[in-house]
């Protein structure tokens, strides 16, 4: 829902990095997106194409790595992928604790023409 303002930040990060490396063109942008971050990747690409016009990032392809949300079972001390509408550990049924795994949203790397 808030992809526009976040994509502006992505373009800013990408163009700053490109400028630091004196690059004329950005070929690819590798993003890491946790599935509980609420980000709709298709919207990010649409906004990216619009916002990046006229900058080094124009025409760059977004490559997205998805991360499944995981919880930590306090009983088994093991991570598990969060089931829908439940927080129960699949092995013992104890409710898992939230972790940061699955809420990622960052620019991992970019590929540049230098």
């Amino acid at each position: 829902m808030h992809e526009f303002s976040l994509t502006k930040q992505i373009v800013r990060i990408v163009n700053n990095t490109a400028a630091d490396h004196h690059a004329k063109k950005v070929n690819k942008v590798h993003l890491v997106v946790g599935e509980s971050s609420g980000i709709i990747p298709d919207s990010v690409q649409i906004y990216f194409d619009m916002i990046a016009v006229g900058t080094a990032a124009e025409g760059a392809q977004l490559v997205i790595k998805y991360i499944k949300p995981q919880m930590l079972c306090p009983n088994c001390n093991k991570y598990f992928i969060r089931p829908r509408f439940s927080f129960a550990c699949p092995d013992c049924g104890t409710l898992g604790n939230p972790t940061d795994i699955g809420s990622e949203f960052y620019v991992e790397s970019i590929e540049l023409d230098t």
């Binding site: 930040q9 960052y106 023409d113 230098t114």
Partner: peptide, 17 residues
């Protein structure tokens, strides 16, 4: 022209934070 892979690792919420 060379294709260079640059590590960034910047959180997109950084500026807001």
């Amino acid at each position: 022209m060379a294709n260079e892979d640059i590590k960034v690792m910047e959180n997109i919420y950084n500026e807001n934070d």
